[in-house]
């Protein structure tokens, strides 16, 4: 079902090296990946496999050493908030701004008039489940709420692509599952293209149309998994259990390599 839609993101032979005190380290090696419009593509793999680096490149925050990244057919060089919005693992809310003002942030940078951006942000708070919390400061919000504000901030600028770097990684297990359900709902309503980084098999299987398993450092795409089941998915079905076992065996192998 993904191939039918147009290609939105193309990653072509991307390599990235970092200089560390113990010499250069290759974070990504010759990574190629293509993502279609409306896809929910999950990157999963051991710690340090360069998932976040790849996301940073798509967001225009990190430049590749080799290869290139195309969004809408155009090479990514700098952050382009008209096309791409990013949600970080650490919510990264501005502590001196209220929830509403945080959601407004991107629009404010783009010079959207105050009344209009306030209206856009206010309308988002309902679906974010933050209706009564517009005037609260981040310190007054729970971890899950903070992350929803961060997602709202990304949704507010209405970019086609949403990059999410382990957005629920710091939350407890229960909140995580609920946030996954909530995100699924948002995604299906807004029709965004999502690139989602996670460590959680559950999240990957529950949310994605495609899952890319990455190898231990230097990161490469080890395998792609296409998931065509209907939403919302039953996590207990035999089909899902089989997929889960398959995915786990691939990730397990890489995680063991990463630990060595």
């Amino acid at each position: 079902m993904t191939a039918a839609r147009g290609e939105l993101i193309a990653i072509e032979g991307v390599t990235k090296r970092y200089l560390t005190s113990s010499g250069p380290v290759e974070a990504l090696h010759d990574v190629s990946l293509s993502v279609g419009e409306g896809d929910f593509c999950t990157l999963i793999g051991p710690s340090g496999c360069g998932k976040s680096t790849l996301l940073g490149m798509l967001g225009g925050l990190v430049a590749p050493d080799e290869g290139r990244l195309l969004v809408d057919g155009q090479p990514v060089t700098t952050p382009d908030p008209r096309r791409v919005a990013t949600v970080f693992q650490d919510a990264g809310l501005f502590p001196w701004r209220t929830a509403l003002q945080n959601v407004e942030f991107g629009l404010e940078l783009q010079g959207v008039p105050a009344a209009r951006r306030r209206r856009t942000a206010s309308e988002l708070l309902g679906p974010l489940g933050l209706s009564g919390f517009a005037e609260k400061y981040p310190r007054e919000l729970s971890g899950g709420m903070k992350q929803r504000v961060a997602i709202g901030r990304a949704l507010a600028i209405d970019a086609k692509i949403l990059l999410m770097d382990e957005p629920f990684g710091a939350l407890d297990e229960q909140t995580r599952v609920l946030m996954g359900e909530w995100l699924l709902d948002i995604w299906r309503r807004t029709l965004k293209t999502v690139i989602f980084v996670t460590h959680s098999l559950h999240e990957a299987l529950f949310l994605s149309t495609r899952v890319a398993v990455m190898t231990a450092r230097p990161g490469r795409i080890k395998s792609m998994l296409e998931l065509s089941m209907e939403y919302p998915r039953s996590m207990e079905s035999p089909e899902m259990a089989a997929l889960r076992a398959k995915l786990w065996s691939e990730i397990r192998e890489e995680s063991l390599r990463a630990m060595r």
Binding site: G59, G60, L61, P79, P81, G92, G106, E108, L109
Partner: peptide, 20 residues
Amino acid sequence: TLVTVARSFGATTWQLYWKV
């Protein structure tokens, strides 16, 4: 993180100073 967030939202240098 706050600086990275602002950059990802396309902040100019001036906006980085003024808003972050």
